[in-house]
Design a binder for these strands. Sequence first.
DNA 1: CAATCGCTTGGTAGCGCTGTCAATATCAGT
DNA 2: ACTGATATTGACAGCGCTACCAAGCGATTG
Lengths: 342, 342
Amino acid sequence: MARKRITPGKIRLAEVAKLAGVSPITASRFFRNPEALSAGKRARVDSAAKELGYVPNLAARALASQRTEVIGVLIPSLTNNVFSDVLRGIYDALDGSRYSIQLANTRYSILQEERLLRLFLAQKPAGLIITGINQTADSRRIMETVDCPIVQIMEVGPSPIDMMIGFSHFDAAKAAIAHLLAQGYRRIGFLGARMDPRVQRRLDGYRSAMTDAALFDPQLIVTTAIPTSVTLGGTLFADLLAKAPDIDAVFCVNDDLALGALFECKRRHVAVPEQMAIVGFNDLEFMASSEPTLSSVRTNRYEMGRNAAVMVIETLEGRRPAEPVVDLGFSVMERQSSARRN
Amino acid sequence: MARKRITPGKIRLAEVAKLAGVSPITASRFFRNPEALSAGKRARVDSAAKELGYVPNLAARALASQRTEVIGVLIPSLTNNVFSDVLRGIYDALDGSRYSIQLANTRYSILQEERLLRLFLAQKPAGLIITGINQTADSRRIMETVDCPIVQIMEVGPSPIDMMIGFSHFDAAKAAIAHLLAQGYRRIGFLGARMDPRVQRRLDGYRSAMTDAALFDPQLIVTTAIPTSVTLGGTLFADLLAKAPDIDAVFCVNDDLALGALFECKRRHVAVPEQMAIVGFNDLEFMASSEPTLSSVRTNRYEMGRNAAVMVIETLEGRRPAEPVVDLGFSVMERQSSARRN
DNA sequence: CAATCGCTTGGTAGCGCTGTCAATATCAGT
DNA sequence: ACTGATATTGACAGCGCTACCAAGCGATTG
């Protein structure tokens, strides 16, 4: 014979319903769609739930309703400051809502990403936030067939899977180079690490700007697949200097590299910005307080995360955003490290 | 009459069992305790599951078994690099295991922490990783009565709730000051931001070391409740210099402050380390490649996260660690910024 | 050869909630 | 007063899996 699994002290929806003098299903409705109840019952269920300290069993809810209140978030790195800002935005937006987050780290691998995606979708998430626009063909296909709001973050591009929020890395890099050109710099080097798709697009922007100015020279480009770091910034800058000793500026694909390049300049007694301009990317906090202060491209990471989460929630609650693709833009922060006028 | 909710294409455990020619319960056992099956059935269920691409329904599992395979993680900040390293360790340790992570951000508030703790525990997590040893009395009581492995991370101290992994912030700060004293520095300032309990203990370590050396002077201490940043490091250092112009060294409670102090020194043309020594805390990556390189106290954050997760898993699998409290230690990284011998 | 033991396997029921539909109550309009 | 429409509420069954118990079976023992 089977067990008698009665959990004595446990507060279930049935207890709440009994105390409130309604049926369990009415109590259930109170939590999902309070407007459907009459004011009287609503108040009765509410106070009964409070009195008993009722906490819904999420597993039971998920099983019965065939969906969860979990939003999956796929990001390529847990270390990169850029993503911690995005994450903070997402967590802040969801704080106090019924939704929770399931986070996974793809480690910049789209194969990992696909694996994790399958894992997530098998659990029927309420929504999905995924980094970038370069997924595997299979990942894309899976996401297109799945029935939940999806937001691609960090960049914008054509043909969103569903929704999209970010900015153009191409344009941002191009604007940074335009700033350097306007300041009179001509031999502008490029430093790139962990050449992920977004960094590639920054390189494209650099190339485009330099070509437009008839200043493009492949010797000015130094890249590596190694993950970024301040130390690496110094190393790459030294490599660049060896290849092209006559450079008068560097554009670094992120601020860590820029800081490393600055330290390397100090080590070599190269004056910044007189002999060498430095421009970074992301505008991390320290860029504004270094000596000299470092120019960078500010991106709206926190807002990106926050809005992405809001877009998912709004869609889930039937108020789908009018515009599925949001370009948050960027701004070139012109500071001491690139302040030379001819 | 009620619905007929037959989901046609869906692969359930029953389908796997049927294909394997066993009962559903035997198939179920295959996933939770494969050793209990005979080799033949085990292989049959395995291949059937693979063939059908079976993915277990976690909600059903959680509901039936009255427990989840989720490990709750409570950290005070998503921005702080220190925690991203810890998190990376946790995620790495759990990658490929059956367990997943539920992350929450307490924002350095023990009241928030208590709220989130209640929220977590209501869903019966498999385990819990919580930051620090300063919880509210209620939080502690709740955790003591709950039946799941709990690891307190980031520091060690007396009376663990369950398990504990970290290091002594008091000793680490004291060792940093001992290093500065050994180098011949005497008027050693203290810079502290976001005075959370661990930072407080670093202050205690500083005070103890300075008092032992008969060099303690409250004028040398500058602290603030403001969250840390590089910019703040510069500001606090300026404040310190105003209060105590004769200082010859600063101990900063973290590396951001140290970097800010370094930049401020450059701005003021104060030579580091000749006129001013700087020592940070955490040994973030950039400390080793700044100019001059910055001394710091290295802590094992990744290992802390990784081991904490392993401790939880081992306990869940019946192999409880012999030693519930693990001190991961620290090491003082002596670099250029504090290299003056008398 | 019967009794006992341990290992493997299966049957039954139920975890706590919600989708579906039906029933009832309420109300406006004629 | 009666009809039809709308707002509220309830009954029932079942979401997919696992806990509990029992049964089957071969091996061991005296």
